[in-house]
């Protein structure tokens, strides 16, 4: 029987971190070696290789673009959960959406962008909030755009199919009962909720697609922490450019625009912090 040896040598770590940086601008410092090991061991196993050094050798072979993409995706797929950190969703429900609905009552359009959405818990949370608390939006043109760098994870998100651990994380019981059906050991979000979301592949460090609409609310949570200050600034400038003047940006709990040359003002809504674009 072949024994996997996933121990990471410095050369392999250096190769992986520079590949990830080149493709996604995400910085992997030395202390993230454990993360490289834990994320790439399944890829090593899938490929029938012995260790990460062998994977690095494979990555350098001609015609290995797909494997390169697979490794970048494995390294950039982040943890997520329904109603993660709860407060932004309270702010969304109690203050932001009621205000926007009033201000957009003539044009009846609303656009929300859930960025780096991973397996989809964040956009599904938003969709369930819209369905549960704002039934009047049925007559509106509501776009809930959800993007991620990884097509592989987007495929999972599109299915709207979650395991027990995933539905155990942050999902209120009444939403589980109302918006999910269970088949075997999988819970699937109702078609109506799935239909509310447009999933798109998007790399934050690339130029944004020209047809990206103006956003009313942007969720860009727990993703900037992986970027250098320069990349953070660039991304936030691009996000600013696609936001309406009276819109809202949510960053992760440990993220801020402080010390970055970007035009956002911090605003506290209840226990949530959001950022408003300024000219």
């Amino acid at each position: 029987m072949t024994t996997l040896n996933s121990a990471l040598d410095p050369q392999s770590f250096s190769y992986i971190s520079s590949l990830v940086r080149r493709k996604s601008a995400i910085i992997l410092e030395g202390e993230k070696a454990y993360l490289v090991e834990s994320r790439l061991t399944p890829v090593v196993r899938e490929m029938g290789l012995l260790n990460i050094s062998e994977l690095v050798a494979e990555l350098q072979k001609p015609g290995s673009q797909t494997l390169n993409q697979r490794v970048v995706e494995a390294m950039t797929t982040n943890e997520t959960s329904f109603f993660r950190d709860i407060h932004p969703f309270d702010a969304l429900k109690d203050k932001i959406l009621p205000g926007l609905i009033q201000r957009r009552s003539k044009e009846k359009t609303l656009t929300i962008w859930s960025n780096a959405c991973s397996s989809g818990q964040e956009p599904y949370t938003i969709a369930m909030i819209l369905a549960e608390h704002f039934p009047m939006l049925k007559n509106w043109k509501v776009r809930l755009i959800s993007s991620d760098l990884s097509n592989r994870i987007l495929d999972k998100a599109r299915l709207g199919c979650f395991n027990q651990t995933e539905v155990n994380r942050g999902l209120p019981m009444n939403f589980l009962l109302k918006y999910f059906t269970k088949d075997g050991n999988k819970w699937t979000v109702d078609q109506g909720i799935r239909n509310m979301i447009e999933f798109r592949e998007l790399n934050l460090v690339d130029p944004f697609p020209a047809l990206l609409p103006k956003m009313d609310i942007v969720f860009l949570r727990n993703v900037l922490i992986y970027f250098s200050p320069e990349s953070k600034t660039e991304i936030l400038k691009k996000v600013h450019a696609v936001m309406h003047k009276d819109s809202y940006l949510f960053l992760g709990g440990s993220e801020t625009t402080m010390n970055l040359k970007v035009n956002f003002e911090r605003e506290q809504i209840g226990s949530a912090v959001c950022y408003r674009p300024v000219a």
Partner: peptide
């Protein structure tokens, strides 16, 4: 207990 009917029952 993992079935939807049981979640509903306890709700």
């Amino acid at each position: 207990e993992l079935e939807m009917s049981q979640v509903a029952l306890s709700a």
